[in-house]
Design a protein around this nucleic acid. Structure first.
Lengths: 203, 203
DNA sequence: GGGCAGTTTGACCATATAGTCAAAGCGTCG
DNA sequence: CGACGCTTTGACTATATGGTCAAACTGCCC
């Protein structure tokens, strides 16, 4: 194990622990002591690896956006519209299930008005622009209903991330009878139905 | 103007200013100095009206939940299912538009795991339970599609509150060409279509 | 062993922030 | 006016927190 790899491993470990803290308490609510504690080292030692609190936070956010947008990238203009949309919803829901900390970190940043990643939001805008065009193409071909494509994307983001960001509320309402990840299965079924057919009765 | 009414007015004004601060920075990120400043009084004066930071925050949250659930209360078992659901979505979207601060305050609290209103969440659970029963009744009568009623409610919450909580993101993606509240009109149209018919092509 | 680069830490500092307190100001009623 | 109660404030305290620094430790190579 080389020195650089050991250092990288340790930085990775610190970032992982910092993510726990930032996701649970927000940027302002998180403290260096908490992060150092979680990572099992002293505060000066933590600051040996990172310049400061902002630095750690920025590092987490910058890597986040790419992963966050990956599922949308996969939306394929060559595929079948409904299949593609279903797939996108499924992937986003899986991310909410498997990476709730990242979802909360992102939600926190948005709630505050994106003070640390305002410029990175441009990439997000461009990607949405591109996929909106794809969706509009499908609509023009009559392969899906004509709806506002950007609001469609918003609603997919909102419904899926809700299960990570509002986890307490969801668990409380569902009763959280130790059913584990069952709620994600139910959510997947529901969202599939909602986005494809809506709630109108069968005719 | 009586003494008590003057005091109440002032308390109301303070709470309003505090809401600005808490919604923008979260509980931990808000400071008493900021709130006092916003309200135009000194910190000791602020603390003459409220016991402390927690006190102000609790007062805001406790009144919030009632207002927040009012639109769901209005969902009427005697009404027409699709009309009732449409109405509920519309009311929730109006709340996101007219009371974004309240939405963000609530989102903040949920993100943190509802540390200050865990017990009040019981009322929310009960109400959802009741309305889920209403929805299930409609499904049994074949007046709407059979879907998981609680997840339906979640998706309405998620999609509407998204416009308040993720406002920066929404504005960035839409281009925010000073179009004012146009996005809410578009969102209303889209959500109506989504929840009623989904995105399947017309057959 | 000795030296060196990389790592770790206790002690410390400056600032921010929740909250206190005694004293002063102010309005109203006699 | 003058006294009384409500309101306001400057000055202060205690604690938390981001960050620094010099010294000590560790493992590795000669």
């Amino acid at each position: 194990m080389t020195k650089t790899s050991r250092r990288t491993d340790k930085e990775e470990h610190i970032l992982d622990c910092a993510l726990n803290v930032f996701a649970a308490h927000g940027f302002r609510g998180a403290t260096l002591d908490q992060i150092a504690d979680e990572a099992g080292l002293s505060k000066p030692n933590l600051l040996y690896y990172f310049k400061g609190k902002e630095d750690i936070h920025r590092r987490l956010l910058s890597r986040l956006l790419d992963n966050w947008l990956a599922p949308l990238h996969q939306l394929d203009a060559e595929g079948d519209p409904l299949t593609e949309i279903r797939g996108y919803i499924e992937r986003k829901l899986e991310m909410a299930r498997d990476y709730p900390r990242e979802s909360r970190l992102f939600a926190n940043e948005m709630l505050r008005g994106a003070p640390h990643i305002q410029q990175d939001l441009h990439a997000l805008k461009m990607l949405v622009e591109e996929k909106a065009k794809t969706l509009r193409g499908w609509m023009d071909e009559g392969r899906m209903a004509r709806v506002d494509p950007k609001h469609l994307i918003f609603s997919i983001w909102a419904t899926t991330q809700h299960y990570a960001d509002f986890d307490v509320q969801v668990r409380t309402v569902l009763g959280d009878d130790g059913r584990g990840d069952g709620r994600f299965h139910d959510a997947a079924r529901f969202l599939d139905h909602l986005f494809i057919k809506g709630v109108s009765p069968k005719t």
